[in-house]
């Protein structure tokens, strides 16, 4: 468990209708690293994330998460060590109350009943919303929903956090809270996002995807200075860097 490595080896994925989803993707993410996954719409970010949690099986190539190669047999163990925050919190919060939602993963992973309440409240305190535990998800604001969605994932104490557009649809204050929260996490983080400013703040490393393939992989700051690369992959220099010319 000491090496929470995420490793992809020559991943290929072709959708049933023939479109190429992923094309020769290889990377290695080490323990504690924060990696931003950027690229235009349809570049393959979500497809890649779905592979990492074992929801799509690559047409060719291998994935290793931690100590296990990702396959049917290890699926449960892999899912235990990874936590995925989905783009739409409404998809992730499906239980009647916030408490039940956070407890859902814990119960499934066999946490003893006596500890569940404790751990649920701990997770909610980390994301700063312990007061919402009795509320129904449909009565939360967008920011609150996102916070709870993150709590549902970190409650099971995964080693690797995978997030799909965590800052989308948030007001500036909620976004700031989210960024500050993510900065405090020591998990290995893989964040797919269009919010390059956030990527700049949280992730020291960035992988740029274009048309299913990796076109750049390196230090975030350096990559974001390369305007030609950004333009090519349908991106724009982060606002915070535009003033620093």
């Amino acid at each position: 468990m000491s090496h929470h490595i995420v490793q992809a080896d020559n991943l290929h994925y072709i959708y049933p209708d023939g479109t190429i989803g992923l094309d020769e993707i290889s990377f290695k993410i080490h323990h504690g690293e924060s990696v931003a996954l950027v690229g235009s719409n349809g570049a393959g970010k979500s497809t890649l994330l779905l592979h990492l949690i074992g929801c799509l099986t690559p047409t060719k190539g291998d994935i290793r998460i931690g100590d296990y190669p990702l396959n049917k047999k290890n699926l449960k163990a892999v899912r235990r060590s990874t936590g995925m925050v989905f783009q739409d919190p409404d998809d992730q919060l499906f239980m009647p109350t916030v408490f039940d939602d956070v407890a859902f993963g814990l119960i499934n992973f066999g946490v003893p009943e006596s500890e569940i309440e404790n751990q649920v409240m701990k997770a909610l305190e980390i994301v700063g919303v312990p007061h919402l535990s009795k509320r129904s998800p449909h009565k939360l604001s967008g920011g609150e929903k996102r916070a709870v969605a993150i709590a549902t994932v970190i409650a099971t104490m995964p080693d690797i956090l995978i997030m799909d557009e965590p800052s989308s649809n948030l007001d500036p204050a909620s976004r700031r809270r989210l960024i500050n929260l993510l900065k405090t996490f020591t998990h290995t983080k893989i964040i797919a996002t269009h919010d390059l400013d956030m990527a700049l703040e949280i992730c020291e490393r960035t992988i740029v995807l274009n048309k299913g393939g990796i076109i750049a992989d390196g230090n975030t700051k350096e990559l974001f200075h390369n305007e030609k690369l950004l333009l090519e992959s349908g991106l724009e220099k982060p606002l915070t860097m535009q003033g620093l010319r």
């Binding site: 949690i53 899912r79 995925m84 998809d91 499906f94 859902f104 993963g105 499934n108 992973f109 549902t152």
Partner: peptide
């Protein structure tokens, strides 16, 4: 589509056909 995404989200948190609640 949403049903599919929810199912994914459930699977990621170890869903195996049983829903239990601690109340």
């Amino acid at each position: 589509d949403r049903a599919q995404r929810i199912h994914l989200a459930m699977c990621c948190r170890g869903f195996d056909g049983h829903i239990q609640m601690v109340r």
